[in-house]
Computed example of a mutant assay.
Amino acid sequence: MRYQKNANVLSFLILLAGSIFMIAPFVWTVSTSMKDQRNVFDMPPKWIPDPFTVKNYTEVWQASPLLNGFMNSLIIVAVVLTVGLLISAMSAYAFGKFDFPFKGVLFLGLLGTMMIPYSVVMIPQYIGFSRLDWVDTLLPLIVPGLFGNIVVIFFLRQYLQGSLPNDLIEAAKIDGCSFPRIFWTIALPIMKPALAAQAALGFMGIWNDFLGPLIYLHTPEKQTIQVLIASMQALYIGQSNYPMIMAAAVIAMVPVILVFFFCQRYFIESLAISGIKG
């Protein structure tokens, strides 16, 4: 018991040190966003702003088109998550509960595409979208995501195999349920925790995406929030105005924090179920 107690104390100290190491940059970002420009590089560093001010938040909102960046990012997130998760759920249900020719080969082929780095397809995609005259629009960031995501399909397939018994599907067929009705009334509600978890992860991934919008979006009014923040120092608020840049970064982090806060229960539940039964 003494050995177990010492191990628990050591584990707690390691986790505490790791949590402090990871949360310190976030705390410093919030602290810097509430300082005056002349106090940013005070020595020794001050974690609590003195004097305390929130003018950076109002000034950065007025100096740059943050609202446009928010709206563009929200449009991409809403469309891609709504349609892409539905397509991924349908694909996962088909691969998990249907029997059809070459099922295993097709699924392995889809998983194999995960090994292709984005840098390989980046230039061909740009050429294709430029010929469609989609450059400097949101379409290159929306359309590919409408066809689902391989990682989401794999996760949902594993989840269904552990949480949706085949006997339940056979019972529904005996009762006269069609395949679409089984999906909408049985499979989809069962996938709710997994879908919520993947929606939270997908939201964070799309919201924080920088490379894609940087490649395709050139007009400031069409840029997403992350590219807009990166261009602030040169275009809107001047050099080295770190408090306003940090204020913009905090504003951009708020939706991600809220989404993760409200979806963390589903995230943990889906991981627990898939880990035990998958």
Score class of each variant (00 low, 15 high):
residue 272 A to V: 14
residue 19 S to Q: 13
residue 202 G to T: 06
residue 102 F to I: 10
residue 251 I to N: 03
residue 172 A to F: 07
residue 268 I to P: 11
residue 230 A to M: 07
residue 271 L to C: 14
residue 100 F to D: 02
residue 207 W to N: 06
residue 20 I to E: 07
residue 237 I to W: 11
residue 38 R to Q: 11
residue 229 I to L: 05
residue 23 I to G: 04
residue 30 V to W: 15
residue 84 G to M: 00
residue 39 N to Q: 05
residue 236 Y to N: 03
residue 64 S to Y: 00
residue 113 T to L: 06
residue 136 D to N: 14
residue 174 I to V: 07
residue 76 I to T: 13
residue 108 L to N: 07
residue 278 G to S: 08
residue 208 N to E: 02
residue 128 G to D: 03
residue 89 A to W: 02
residue 37 Q to G: 12
residue 103 K to G: 02
residue 226 Q to N: 13
residue 73 S to P: 01
residue 265 R to N: 06
residue 6 N to S: 15
residue 235 L to Y: 15
residue 51 P to S: 04
residue 34 M to R: 10
residue 92 A to W: 00
residue 13 L to W: 03
residue 156 L to P: 13
residue 249 A to W: 02
residue 76 I to K: 05
residue 15 L to I: 12
residue 142 I to Y: 00
residue 175 D to W: 14
residue 100 F to K: 02
residue 203 F to T: 03
residue 36 D to K: 12
residue 219 T to F: 13
residue 266 Y to V: 10
residue 124 P to R: 07
residue 57 Y to P: 00
residue 20 I to P: 09
residue 72 N to D: 11
residue 179 F to H: 15
residue 19 S to Y: 14
residue 160 L to I: 06
residue 140 P to C: 04
residue 163 S to T: 15
residue 269 E to T: 15
residue 71 M to H: 10
residue 118 Y to V: 00
residue 20 I to M: 14
residue 133 D to H: 02
residue 30 V to P: 15
residue 218 H to R: 12
residue 263 C to T: 02
residue 261 F to A: 14
residue 23 I to Q: 05
residue 12 F to H: 12
residue 99 D to S: 12
residue 221 E to D: 12
residue 124 P to Y: 12
residue 15 L to Q: 08
residue 170 E to G: 05
residue 129 F to D: 02
residue 46 K to Q: 13
residue 10 L to T: 11
